[in-house]
């Protein structure tokens, strides 16, 4: 029983950084832009948050700074892809290398620095609920914030005018043009907002979850986020479930080892990737039909139609 609680708690804790990034990627992909630079946005966010938390002692400022740097990196992607016609996959990887370089250059002196991280804060009453209490309500503030961010993202995407414009940019950009809106401006906002969330995800990783900084610490979580969005069929709530699944797979290995059960953690780590492929294969056409139409064009020729 305690194993299950440990794994689920770890799933929520470890999945939250992926959740923020995948939520941001949902916003971006819904507008028709895929951003492999999410991995880089998370790195930039993680280091910026760490530096600010170390220098000011205020982790909230760190989250804000991390989000801004994540947005800035995503806007580099938007500039190249939307305004200069670059290939989306190539530009995304370029942003990753940019972030790898920048965080390596400016992060070296912060390796081993101590910071004031976020601490877990049990919500009175709710945290006493059996199982669900410790799993969901004995977490750090950024986890609680993500409980609000998911419905907020859903609401903005599906119930507001801005969300309608954004989704139209992803489904039928010509309709948007007829409507008089500039597709590229809408997409630029979407990609920037997505990058902000990726930066917040990185911040959670460095100043709430691991409380440390080291080079390339994101270790593929940003790529997971990109794949997760496709698995979750571009829906914020499914993204949340998927992020926790990945988080739980990461938490299972250490939890078993802590109980003296020898298990190679990489066998467990690989499960969500295999599962994602299996689910995508099982959905087949249905999965690609759920994709925003303009995004399918990206997969076909790498550049969005504007």
């Amino acid at each position: 029983m305690s194993l299950i609680i440990d794994v689920l708690t770890g799933g929520v804790r470890g999945g939250t950084s992926i959740l923020y990034a995948a939520l941001g990627e949902t916003v971006s992909q819904r507008s028709g832009v895929i951003n492999l630079g999410t991995e880089g946005g998370m790195l930039g966010g993680a280091l910026t948050a760490y530096i600010i938390a170390a220098e000011t002692g205020n982790p909230w400022l760190g989250v804000l700074g991390g989000g801004i740097v994540g947005a800035a990196l995503a806007l580099v992607h938007a500039l190249l892809v939307l305004w200069r016609g670059a290939n989306q996959f190539a530009s995304g990887l370029m942003v990753l290398f940019l972030a790898l370089g920048l965080t390596s250059l400016f992060g070296a002196s912060y390796v081993g620095r101590t910071i004031t991280p976020f601490t877990t804060w049990a919500i009175p009453v709710l945290s006493d609920i059996p199982v669900l209490g410790p799993v969901l309500f004995d977490q750090d503030p950024l986890v609680y914030l993500s409980y609000l961010a998911v419905p907020a993202a859903w609401f903005v995407l599906f119930r507001t005018r801005a969300g309608l414009l954004l989704r139209t940019a992803g489904e039928r950009s010509d309709a948007l043009t007829v409507h008089g809106a500039d597709v590229r401006v809408v997409r630029t906002w979407a990609v920037g907002a997505g990058g902000f969330l990726a930066g917040v995800g990185g911040a959670h990783l460095s100043i709430a979850y691991t409380n440390t900084w080291f080079e390339n610490m994101v270790a593929g979580r940003g790529f997971i986020a990109v794949a997760l969005v496709i698995l979750a069929a571009w829906g914020p709530v499914k993204v949340m479930a998927g992020a926790y699944l990945f988080g739980a797979a990461l938490a299972l290995g250490p939890a078993l080892q802590a109980r003296g059960i020898p298990v190679n953690q990489f066998l467990l780590h690989v499960i969500p990737f295999v599962l994602t492929l299996v689910v995508l294969a099982a959905l087949g056409r249905r999965s690609s039909n759920a994709a925003p139409a303009e995004l399918q064009r990206v997969f076909e020729n790498g550049a969005p139609a504007t």
């Binding site: 200069r84 670059a86 290398f97 390596s104």
Partner: peptide, 27 residues
Amino acid sequence: LPAASVNILTALILAAVLGWTTVKARR
């Protein structure tokens, strides 16, 4: 300086080449 810093230079050259070395008839 950390060896990985050079990735900045790699990325900047790539960005310039991807975005600014061909003239595209867009729009």
